[in-house]
Every structure is written in C-alpha cells, then in structure tokens.
Simulated scan of single mutants.
Amino acid sequence: MLFPLPDTETLYRALLDRDPAYDGRAYVGVTSTGIFCRLTCPARKPKPENCRFFASVAECMSAGFRACLKCHPMAPAAEADPIVAALLKLLADRPGYRWGEQDLERMGFDPSTVRRSFKRHFGITFLEMARLERLRLGFETLGDGGRVIDAQQDAGFESPSAFRSAFSRLIGQPPGRLAENALLQAHWLPTPLGTMIAVTDERALHLLEFADRKALPGELKKLFELSRCSLGVGRLAPHAVLETQLDAYFTGRSPDFTIPLALHGSDFTRSVWEALRQIPPGAVRSYGEVASAIGRPSATRAVARANGANQIALIIPCHRVIGADGSLTGYGGGLWRKQKLIEIERQFTR
C-alpha cells in the first residue's frame, strides 16, 4: 500500500530537512529540471513552486520525470526498509545457515512483520529466500559432479526426501531425473539483483530467469520435455560468455548481449521478442507501442501475453515495457527489480 501523503507544506519541510522518515515513501518532481528525487537527496533544494510530490516512483515516471543521478530514487524500495536490509546482510554473511522463526525472535525481530516485509518487497518470505540460498549450494555441488547425497548435505537438508522435494519445486524435476552429459545444462549465476538460472546447450542460451520467479519450475519442465529429458546441471562454454556480458551490464560498461539465443515460441511471439530487443537501453515502451511496431496495433493483449511468456530475462528486455499510463506494470521478477533494471539502463543513455 502507498504511504498517504501529507500536505505539500509538510512535504516541502521534509525535503528541506532531508527527513529520513519519508525515504522510499514520498518523492519530489522538480519541474524546472524534469528530475525526481528522494526527499533525502543531497542536491540543492528547489523552490517550492517548482516541486510536485508523489507517493511512488511509478507516479513520477508517468508524470514525465526522470530519476536523479545523485540519490537514485529508483533503487529497490527494500533498501529503505531497515528490517529487510539487516536480514539480507545476515543472509549474505551466513548463506548455508538453516534460518528459522526462532532465530528471528532471538534477534528481536517479529516473524510476522518480517514475513510481511519480505512478501511486500520480493514476493517470498525471508525463510523461503534463505531456503533458496541453501538450495544454491546443493545446486553447485551437483554442477561440480557431486553426488545427490553430497548436494543434500551441502544444502543443509536433513532428509533426502526434503531435498528432492525442494529441488523439484525449483527445477521442475527431482535431482535423480537429471541426465549426465545432457544436451541442456542449467547453471546458477549470482547477480546484484539476485540469483539467476541459465540453461544453455553447447551453442545458445535457452533460458535466463531469476531463481525466485514462480513460473521458473514450469518453464524448466517444458525445456525438460522439449529436450527429451536431456537436462542436467553443469557449466558449458556459453555460460562463461553470459557471465562476462552480465558483469558488463550490471557494472554499467555495456548493455549489449551477443550470446546466441534459442527461442521457443510461435512466429507471433518471436516477433514480439524481436521488437523488445529493438527498444534502446534506457527507453521504455507501452504494450500498444510494441503492437504497432510489429504491425499489429490491435493486438495489445496478445503482445502482453508474449511479453509474459519471455524466458530470457534482461536480454529480451520485457522490463522495458510499461503500462499505457506510464505505470510500472507486472514483471515476473518483481517490480522492485523492474525499477532497478530501468535505473541501471538510464546510465547507458548518457
């Protein structure tokens, strides 16, 4: 829910005072510059008559303002939540630890508050995120040729059945069904916005998704069937290429991805994906504009479905598509990631 904004005079006073209570909960658009900021921005303060206040980043963008380069107002809202920030740091420090509600209580956190905060920002709870991080350790063990029992122990699961069940929910298949020397190999890639899973063959990339996306198991199951059960866990040459290009993207050095893609979709769907790739980094388009670009101006809904069916995140940039009113519409990786990706790409326009 959006924070109900107080009157303009109160907000302007908060802007002058750089009041942290409003950080991530209210924004100011400066009409004289066309830029929007957090109220805690260190830049010189505008005159009151040049200020418009908003409750969300989406409202600022729909009003035509662009993000400030000093205060980065499009950074994930989760960073402004002290509970989330503290627990994310703990998770990074102890990735293999089996976190439970009793741990949260012992540290003085209310489990229900933590659960709501993480669900609001990420769509999953802290405990689910911690479980996913432990699965990553097991995933890496399998990718290095380790046994299933070793992967289970590295992931901190006490029982084989619990590990098989958790692995199946993530990958769409139990570890025992994964093939050796498989045609397609899934590899776990860390990024500044969370872990991604990349599936490639010896030549091309078939799938790139954030590991916490709810649609991921279904997408991997389709690839499993398409490859006639030839799906495994491991690292191929295209994974190294992808890692290099993702690093260049996230560090602001290059928005270009040249890795070959294997696209699984109808002719119409692939035409939409190609149109998405034509949107320049730092720019956004509406579904209607994409429909017009492929010569099907009345197919807005079909374009939206094709956008949602994209299995290669970032490289096929479905995050660059917004609502007709300028709002940040749904994104499988989470709206907080969509905000951050748009912010990252703004630097490529300079």
Rank of each mutant, 00 (worst) to 15 (best):
M1Y: 02
M1S: 09
E9G: 05
R18L: 02
R25I: 04
T33F: 11
A43N: 12
A55R: 01
S56H: 02
V57N: 05
A67K: 02
C71F: 07
H72T: 12
A77T: 13
A77F: 06
A78S: 15
A78K: 06
D81R: 00
P82T: 01
L87Q: 02
L88V: 03
L90H: 15
D103F: 14
R106S: 12
G108D: 07
H121E: 09
R134E: 12
L137Q: 11
G138A: 05
T141D: 08
G143D: 03
E158Y: 07
L184M: 15
L189N: 15
T191K: 04
L193A: 08
G194F: 04
T195L: 09
L207T: 04
L208R: 02
K222I: 11
E225Q: 14
G234C: 05
G234P: 08
P238A: 06
V241Q: 12
F250L: 10
R253L: 04
R253M: 04
D256E: 15
P260L: 03
D267M: 10
S271L: 12
V272T: 14
E274R: 13
Y287I: 00
R296W: 05
A309V: 10
N310P: 14
I315T: 07
R320W: 06
V321S: 08
G323H: 00
G334K: 00
L335Q: 00
K338Y: 03
R350G: 10
